[in-house]
Lab assay of single mutants.
Amino acid sequence: QRITLKDYAMRFGQTKTAKDLGVYQSAINKAIHAGRKIFLTINADGSVYAEEVKDGEVKPFPS
Rank of each mutant, 00 (worst) to 15 (best):
K16F: 02
G22D: 05
N29A: 14
I38Q: 00
V58T: 14
Q1K: 11
D55Q: 09
K59L: 14
K6C: 07
R36L: 12
K16A: 07
K59P: 04
A34M: 11
D7M: 08
A9W: 07
I38P: 00
F61Q: 02
L5Q: 00
D7Q: 09
P62K: 05
V53S: 07
V48Q: 02
V48L: 09
Y24D: 15
L5A: 00
V48A: 05
A27L: 14
I32G: 01
A18E: 03
I3S: 05
T41A: 06
I32N: 02
Y49V: 11
L5D: 01
V23A: 06
A50G: 11
G22W: 04
F12M: 06
L40E: 00
Y49N: 09
Q14N: 12
E51P: 00
Y49C: 08
Y8L: 01
V23P: 02
A34I: 08
S47E: 07
L40D: 00
G13Q: 01
Q25M: 09
G13E: 01
I3D: 03
Q25G: 09
G46E: 05
P62V: 05
S47R: 08
A18W: 02
A9Q: 08
D45R: 03
K37N: 13
R2M: 09
V58N: 08
V53C: 10
F39R: 03
E57M: 13
E52F: 03
R2P: 08
T17A: 11
K37D: 14
V23N: 02
K19D: 08
D55E: 11
A27V: 15
L21E: 00
K19N: 12
G22Q: 07
V53H: 13
T41H: 09
G22T: 04
Y24I: 12
S47D: 07
P60N: 06
P60Y: 05
P62E: 05
M10T: 09
Q25A: 14
Q25K: 15
K59V: 15
I28S: 01
A50P: 02
D7T: 06
K30S: 14
Y8M: 01
A44S: 12
L40F: 03
K37A: 14
L5C: 02
Q25L: 10
D7S: 06
Y8W: 04
